[in-house]
Design a protein around this nucleic acid. Structure first.
Length: 434
DNA sequence: TCTGGGGTCCTAGGACCC
DNA sequence: TCTGGGGTCCTAGGACCC
């Protein structure tokens, strides 16, 4: 295909099976014996499910109420999401994985790539087996491992585990003959290829491309025309040519979003003010946690688009800030100005959110040449917020808060079925009867 | 009654500059 | 009838990921 020599890579991807559901099983003996599903905020959708639940035909983000009968019939245990717990267990999994390879890319809360190009591994399957067993033993979370010469092929291998090696949880494509790899790829539906979403899958399947092997040999020119450079990279990677870079170091977020649906419809501006203030407080915490400041604040709100009987409204407004900041009261002030631009009385609001954009590391902030803003001013506010963040971290969210966040918070999400934060809160440790 | 909450990257097109 | 050409920066929107 190409004349130039490309240094070969070898990647493994480790993916926690039904991660949130598996986390619930770690601390709940009864859940081990039952199918488990984890719910979104407000307990509205199913966002993680064990295999038994998948077999019922319940897909990601399916609303619970649609499946109430099957869920009950099959004795599925439902849990509200408990992200504090999941994040903590994720960290522990990643720590173990980092011992298996010199380079680790934490790709999501439940997945990581390992660059094992220069690791001496006599038997890749045995290597993967050791990873699985260690994580199972130490953290009690089952994982699947895919190994191949590109990230896309490793992801494909990981998906194919479910078809070819469910019991072992391992599939290694590295070192196989091309025809053998193609045989595997022919079993992977094109929409399961990493980088091919529903729109592209629809486009190519219309042209007779329904699996990964067919995509691999489809016209590269056509792929490039319709799916641009991203699609082209995907196809190249299916050919075993690594073009998606490995990103080891943690990158600061370029945008920070905080948004949630309300537990019940909201009409009053006073409640929206509380919600937007609270979301902004959370976004600002995240911003400060990465030592950054923002120069842009957006607010959006919308009615429930699922309810066709309601009159619909959706809008957003962005304010460019006169100076970079991470100071919650400033950010809330601008967020409320933005909210004021888009709030129209009379609608039943279902969801609101804030978005921070134009994020910069705060050590790049400089005095404004002819303005009132000074770096000293920024640092003074930052110091104050750091103290408040410490208190809130120690005593729980919103121990110290801005008054517009409100006290009652009727609009707040429901989490009726949340498990305890076993691993991070002293007062919620697992109790064992002796 | 009840429908997630985060993120990323890329492209096209317009504004603006010389 | 002719009506520069090249560059950068910004934004909105669309695709994707988990």
């Amino acid at each position: 295909m190409l004349d130039i020599a490309i240094p070969k890579k070898i990647y493994a991807i480790v993916d926690c099976n039904s991660f949130y559901a598996s986390c619930e099983r770690v601390f709940n003996g009864r859940a081990r014996k039952h199918p488990v599903a984890v719910l979104s905020n407000n307990d509205g959708c199913i966002i993680a499910r064990t295999d038994e639940v998948k077999k019922l035909g319940i897909t990601m983000a399916d609303p619970v109420y649609k499946h109430a009968v099957e869920l009950q019939e099959h004795g599925v245990m439902l849990f509200s999401s408990n992200f504090t717990l999941y994040a903590d267990l994720s960290k522990r999994v990643m720590r173990i994985l980092s011992e298996f390879a010199p380079h680790l890319e934490v790709y999501s809360i439940d997945e990581a790539f390992l660059d094992i190009t220069n690791v001496y591994i006599p038997d890749y399957t045995a290597f993967a087996k050791q990873i699985r067993e260690t994580i199972l033993e130490c953290i009690d979370i089952p994982v699947s491992v895919g190994i191949a010469d590109t990230k896309t092929l490793a992801k494909a291998a990981n998906k194919l585990v479910k078809i070819f090696s469910k019991d072992s949880g391992i599939l290694n494509l590295h070192g196989l003959r091309e025809e053998m790899i193609d045989t595997y790829l022919s079993q992977l539906p094109v929409e399961d290829v990493w980088g091919i979403g529903s729109r592209y899958a629809e486009y190519v399947s219309f042209r007779g491309v329904t699996n990964a092997r067919e995509l691999k040999y489809y016209s590269l020119k056509e792929v490039k025309r319709r799916m641009h450079i991203v699609g082209e990279r995907t196809v190249m990677e299916l050919h075993g040519i690594a073009c998606i870079p490995f990103q080891e170091e943690y990158k600061d977020k370029k945008g920070i979003l905080s948004s949630k649906a309300f537990s019940s419809p909201v009409k009053d501006s006073s409640q929206l003010i509380e919600a937007v203030s609270t979301y902004m407080a959370r976004a600002a915490e995240k911003l400060r946690a990465q030592n950054c400041a923002t120069k842009s604040v957006s607010v959006f709100l919308r009615t429930n688009h699922f309810d066709e009987r309601l009159s619909q409204y959706s809008n957003s407004f962005t304010i460019k800030l006169p100076f970079p900041t991470s100071y919650t009261p400033d950010l809330i002030k601008y967020a409320l100005l933005a909210l004021d631009q888009i709030f129209i009385p009379g609608y039943l609001y279902h969801k609101a959110g804030v978005f921070l954009d134009k994020i910069i590391p705060d050590d790049t902030i400089q005095n404004e040449l002819f303005g009132a803003f000074t770096k000293q001013d920024y640092l003074r506010k930052k110091k104050l917020m750091e103290e408040i963040d410490k208190l809130n971290f120690r005593y729980g969210h919103d121990t110290v808060f801005v008054t517009t966040q409100g006290v009652k918070r009727d609009w707040k999400m429901k989490q009726a079925k949340r498990s305890q934060r076993y691993s991070t809160r002293m007062d919620e440790l697992l109790r064992v009867k002796t």
